[in-house]
């Protein structure tokens, strides 16, 4: 009934996709504003932060939030607001990039595994099993230890890879399961019967129908990546002190002081939650917006 209702409406594609997105996914638009703000904070952190994030001020150690230090200061008297603004860069680059790289490679592997089946499927899935068997931290540790540091534009590229790798097998599993059911759909059979190439079938016919699980995994793992980066930092393998990073702010000496100075963990924690929440909402909105079935 709804299908016929929609059939009476005009053609579904609107002229301006951005306006259309804002109109039909208001929550998505709000979350996009939050993400954009964080991105701007990351890019222009030097300009917008009130203090130098590395500036140690022993006069105001563990100062509670006040007019001078909106979010308070940490055990070295560094301004937490400035550190959060500077940390946005690390968080977004490492969190987003590693989650994106990990989820995308996982999705490609999962889709290929499901499409080809048989031996290829078996081989990919056994590798995935091995990867899943390692605890995430150990796996990332090994990668960091083997690859060492490779700074690109001030960001450790190998760290991104190290965080991305544990994400790959998990996404591969989930996407494979979804791809198996898409693989069995008659429209994929129809594409095979039409003699299309494998690449075309995977990219054109299967991938768009796997967007939903992919986007959910992608946004969910951004949070994981930020936290994993913090754990690695704590072990001295990730971003290291005194660089401003959200995870590091949570896991560093904050744990020794949080009773006396709860703002030391409260604000970085809020920053991570807000980022994750915004990415999740944005991912959901994007998924719905991309799905033609919701365009009624």
């Amino acid at each position: 009934m709804t299908a016929e209702a929609a059939a009476d409406a005009d053609a579904p594609r609107r002229a301006n996709p951005l306006l259309d997105f804002c109109r039909r996914q208001p929550l998505g638009a709000i979350s996009f504003v939050v993400i954009a703000t964080m991105m701007l904070a990351g890019i222009f952190s030097e300009q917008v932060s009130p203090y130098d994030p590395l500036n140690i001020d022993f006069a105001s150690i563990l100062a509670p939030p006040s007019g001078d230090h909106w979010f308070g200061t940490d055990a070295f008297g560094r301004d937490i607001l400035s550190r959060i603004i500077h940390g946005a860069r690390t968080a977004l680059v490492i969190g987003f990039l590693s989650s994106f790289i990990g989820s995308t490679s996982g999705a490609v592997l999962g889709a290929a595994s499901a499409y080809f089946g048989g031996r290829i499927d078996n081989a990919i899935q056994r590798v995935v099993d091995v990867l899943l068997a390692f605890p995430i931290i150990v796996l990332a540790l090994v990668v960091v230890a083997v690859l060492g540091k490779g700074l690109v534009l001030g960001i450790d590229a190998n760290l991104i890879v190290a965080i991305a790798i544990p994400i790959v097998p998990k996404v591969a599993r989930v996407v494979r399961a979804a791809a198996l059911s898409v693989r069995a759909m008659p429209y994929v059979d129809a594409a095979r019967a039409a003699g299309y190439g494998n690449l075309r079938i995977i990219c054109r016919h299967m991938a768009p129908n796997l967007v939903a699980p992919y986007l959910i995994m992608l946004t969910a793992y951004i949070a994981q990546a930020i936290l994993l980066e913090a754990s690695l930092s704590f072990l001295g393998l990730g971003v290291t002190e005194p660089t401003a990073a959200w995870g590091l702010m949570l896991s560093g000496n904050a744990s020794d002081f949080f009773r006396e100075a709860p703002w030391m963990i409260l604000f970085p924690g809020l920053a991570i939650s807000l980022a994750v929440f915004a990415f999740s909402l944005f991912g959901d909105a994007l998924r719905d917006w991309l799905d033609p079935r919701f365009k009624t």
Binding site: A3, A7, A11, P292, R293, K295
Partner: peptide
Amino acid sequence: AGRYPHQLS
């Protein structure tokens, strides 16, 4: 031609 399958009977 511009419609999606779910919009058809």
